[in-house]
Write a protein that binds this DNA or RNA. Structure first.
Lengths: 369, 369
DNA sequence: TTGTATGCGTTATCAC
DNA sequence: GTGATAACGCATACAA
């Protein structure tokens, strides 16, 4: 159910003596009093059904005159629409579940910002959940959301075997994935073109003269971690004389990036990469931590590239060369796609792949030797 | 209404031939079929009321034996709780409105992260809204939330004359402010001790030898902007020989910080401040932008202090000295306080003031001269 | 254009 | 311990 436009002044609440069903009048505070369409109907001397029609502004259903009278009465009585009752009746709610792994991650703040804004402007409200790790809790998240009759779900950063996906599918809840997709095409999704990302990065590093390049890969359970790694390996293998290395970071975190870089630094210097491409900015920042601790200079001794162009990475030392993903367009597309699914449940799963851009800053330079 | 614990396997849905009200069976997809408490009751040969009691696990109301049978049947039929119907009946919902100005701001991601987590663990779901600027929309946000029967609200960064506050009060919705409070004590709130913040900063700068100190103040319409400025003026006036300056930043943004710093730099150098205390980190980062553009070095030429200790400010150049506010404890307290208000609506407004700490990094140093 | 009647799925209050 | 029944507030098909 969409946003209502029941207008009523705040100042005048029950200015007249009105007959409200006594048992309610007794049990509730005046400010909490529940005025229903029945109450409005009684005072306006019309039928509750008419009030319902009038207040929703259905065109051509109720005369201008009675509509105005009803609106007037509703305002005077301080009538407030009860969307819960309406949802029960219509089986339609204006709630969308927005699922995001971690709002502390600077990537997801802006993402949810865009999603919430788009959804709200379309008349929907966002129920935001950060699911716990354990599988049964994740299932329970969907169950709870379903109990609330959410009309649809937007899930960011899903992993392939996430119990939430199966649960949502079983319950038939329309669903759009954002940021990460899946191997299979079961669900609609809006994702970055990771192959293009890697291409941009490798072209840039090769142009600078790098041939030994390392990739600090994100978790393989995520499409972004997997996709960037696969693209890295595929593209590096095509470059004559290039030598690629992959080190796994255990998570998309600064700490994991630190550890991954340390393990890279433990290798023999002669063969070591002169440039590092991190699967995301947090990993890159962790890598910078490790490099600083090891006494290495960036970009003189080693170049570092991130991914995502998170807020503030232009301010770190050195300003990070990174791949910018179109977050705002991503949320717009995801919200729009979900709306299409809600409007037409038979719509088949759709992919939308957005093109990233490279942002060159000061963390990359030609190799020294 | 709190989280339910209706457990049912996902694999077995309607394994038997079951009589479902035919009009529903015809109109709905199998996977969408709505199994109600009545259906369960019919199959389990008990009364719907008994099913309700059994499934909610009310102690001592239904025998162990029938409870197990009912749970079994519910599982087999694929029964799913309808929280909307329950809310309509009980007038209690497990929805909390979480209102935050801007999820793109790195301060609010972590804040909402904490709030959502706390609320979820208490059995509540968070409806997150970023209200538009115009007053009537802000009222409408509360109206819509109220129509959804939210049990309570958490509002971060409220301004004194915000229409949302009046609306919430009129509708009698329990409310806790977080991050910013108000002058008056109408609402419960959880805030930082801004006077302590300023004290920490000024003690630090004085210890370094600074006497000419500028404050890049945030908007006076916010309690944090106002509070920090007032504390700054009050404390500076007590320091013998100190010379304080205040420049207003028009917003808590990087751009506003840039502009404010520029206007400060336009002043005569001899009298210029040797240290700058920004009302928040974003303003500080904007100030750094302006200083770099002006060719001034930080901290050699001028020291800069921020406020909040946002993510990544330890990585910027130079790593920012700033005041850390206990964001996690703030959200914990806010969620806890709201729960107290929900449990006891007669609870008077309560203030909780949390103590910040200073994080000294590389953006501050003794003045040159 | 307006009114009548009914049900959405659940819980609470009784009675048994 | 279990059953019968009446709300909760609203929207909708249909009749008038």
């Amino acid at each position: 159910m969409r946003a209502r436009h029941v207008r009523h002044s705040s100042s005048s609440r029950q200015p007249f003596a009105i007959k409200i069903a006594p048992h309610r009048a007794l049990h509730t505070m005046p400010s909490m009093s529940t005025v229903t369409i029945k109450d409005v109907a009684r005072v306006a001397r019309v039928n509750p059904a008419t009030v319902s029609k009038a207040l929703r502004g259905l065109p051509g259903k109720v005369s201008q005159e009675t509509r105005e009278r009803i609106e007037q009465v509703a305002r005077e009585l301080g009538y407030r629409h009860n969307a819960v009752a309406a949802t029960l009746r219509t089986r339609r709610s204006d709630l969308i579940g927005v699922i995001v792994p971690d709002l502390g991650n600077p990537l997801f703040g802006p993402l949810v910002q865009g999603l919430e804004r788009q959804l709200r402007e379309g008349g929907w409200m966002s129920v935001v959940v950060q699911p716990p790790e354990d599988p049964s809790s994740r299932r329970a998240v969907i169950t709870t959301l379903a109990a609330r009759q959410v009309a649809g779900l937007i899930i960011s950063s899903a992993e392939s075997d996430d119990p939430m996906l199966g649960a949502a599918a079983e319950m038939g809840i329309p669903l759009v994935l954002v940021n990460r997709g899946l191997n299979e095409r079961r669900f609609s999704c809006v994702v970055n073109d990771d192959r293009e990302s890697v291409m941009l990065v490798l072209d840039h590093l090769r142009a600078l003269g790098h041939t030994r390049i390392a990739h600090l890969a994100g978790p393989m359970s995520s499409s972004t971690g997997r996709g960037r790694r696969q693209a890295f390996e595929a593209l590096m293998s095509k470059i004559p004389g290039a030598q690629g290395t992959v080190v796994d970071a255990s998570a998309f975190t600064r700490e994991a990036g630190f550890a991954a870089m340390q393990s890279l630094l433990a290798r023999r210097r002669a063969r070591r990469a002169t440039a590092v491409f991190a699967a995301n900015d947090l990993i890159a920042v962790g890598a910078l931590d490790a490099l600083r601790q090891a006494g290495l200079r960036v970009p003189e001794d080693i170049s570092v590239v991130g991914h995502n162009d998170m807020p503030l990475v232009d301010m770190i030392a050195p300003p990070l060369t990174t791949v910018r993903i179109p977050l705002a367009r991503m949320s717009d597309h995801a919200a729009a796609l979900l709306r299409e699914h809600l409007a037409d449940p038979s719509l088949p799963p759709t992919q939308r792949v957005l093109t990233p851009t490279l942002v060159v800053r000061a963390s990359t330079a030609p190799p020294l030797e």
